[in-house]
Design a protein around this nucleic acid. Structure first.
Lengths: 216, 216
DNA sequence: TATATTACTGACTCAAAAGTAAGTTACTTG
DNA sequence: CAAGTAACTTACTTTTGAGTCAGTAATATA
């Protein structure tokens, strides 16, 4: 008769959601949204699929919880940095870009960005949620930073909407690259740090040797 | 007895592959690789799924054929443009970027790029194929153009490898944006032309009002 | 220790889609 | 025009995964 020390499972109502969220984050990042199996999420969290459904109503609900838990808070922190900054605008731009790299780009959270870019088309409701909670707020943040630099005369009077896109594009791409063709690029990997330095350099100084000769 | 004019179907051995490829391109672009149903591809081409399997051994084979038919040839054309160019390097850069936009970015082919960025991780063999046939050749092309401008003294002596990434990132992002969150952005769409102008402007001139004051 | 409660399990249903192959029909050829 | 062939269809098998629920076992309580 099994009368031994350890029970076959434990009741841990409080810990389950966090454990399931952690497992879900890992698998969503590894495989994407559609390809993540809830059976696997449950297994990685050390429970059965039935338990997962006790805490989350379905896959979509689980995913939204992952985003709310992990991504949304970082936006708030970035807003604080911009509002509290006292130095120059080029400095702030550097700080925001490199800070983003530390907190998102260089962590598994970059996989969530990539996932959303990849699968938003097939999951409209998830896309709408992410767009409202993350993208709109993130863009507003960058634009505020640019306007600050333009107002102070440190930046040229560029189109803020477009400059926002020009700045976001390489950052998003860096995240995409981290999660695309990684095996193919194994011999010739992209160095994010070098890339970001090149990008900031080009962004601030341009490509031309003699800017006064610019055709446009 | 059905003895009428039209047969229930026709034998059209020669036309089928092209029709299936066209249908497959549409659906791969609309839904991505994993989410595209071969039943639907066949239906859109006006045949049954069994017929599709007469001409392509499986989904992967079909997809590779779509890429070879549509994407690979464009790379070759771009190589010719670079080799034949006589004008200035900034002009060539403009021509390559805008030409790419005409032939890939602004067509449904952009959906293939997006698909590969999105799903390469889940389909390693397809990824390897695309990496070898498209990405490596595309990168070589950009780098050749940059070296031309550096050698002639028109461009600063930037790191060519990184500058390639800095240039490709916004172009790829523009394609991603076309196929991500399109419904969410309906009210505030990204204008590719404006974006490209802003990007080329920033790329050539930089963001700083007074470049001599650059902190780096 | 006995009983009640509830966190958790695991086997189930249902649906979708890749791939298969036997059978059918259009067309060809002698 | 009759018989052969090959292009095409349709119904099938197999697999996979989301979501459900009746039952089980850990724990709280008295």
């Amino acid at each position: 008769m099994p009368h031994d020390s350890k029970p076959r499972w434990e009741r841990r109502k409080d810990a389950r959601p966090q454990e399931l969220l952690a497992a879900a984050l890992d698998l969503f990042v590894e495989r994407g949204y559609a390809a993540t199996r809830l059976d696997d999420v449950a297994a990685r969290a050390g429970v059965s699929k039935g338990t997962l459904y006790l805490y989350f109503t379905n896959k979509e609900d689980l995913f939204k919880a992952v985003v709310r838990e992990n991504v949304v808070p970082v936006i708030g922190e970035a807003e604080s940095i911009i509002d509290g900054h006292e130095g120059s605008s080029p400095e702030l731009l550097r700080e925001i870009i490199l800070g983003w790299w530390e907190r998102i780009g260089n962590t598994k959270l970059s996989g969530i960005t990539k996932l959303m870019m990849a699968e938003s088309g097939n999951f409209p409701e998830v896309a709408q949620f992410y767009h409202d909670e993350v993208i709109l707020r993130g863009n507003a943040l960058i634009k505020r930073m640019l306007e600050r630099g333009i107002k102070s005369g440190e930046f040229r009077q560029v189109d803020v909407e477009q400059a926002n896109n020009v700045i976001c594009a390489p950052m998003i791409m860096l995240m995409m690259w981290k999660h695309s063709f990684s095996t193919c690029r194994a011999s010739n990997p992209i160095s994010p740090e070098d890339y970001l330095e090149s990008f900031i350099d080009l962004l601030l100084n341009g490509l031309l040797r003699d800017p006064s000769s610019a055709a446009n």
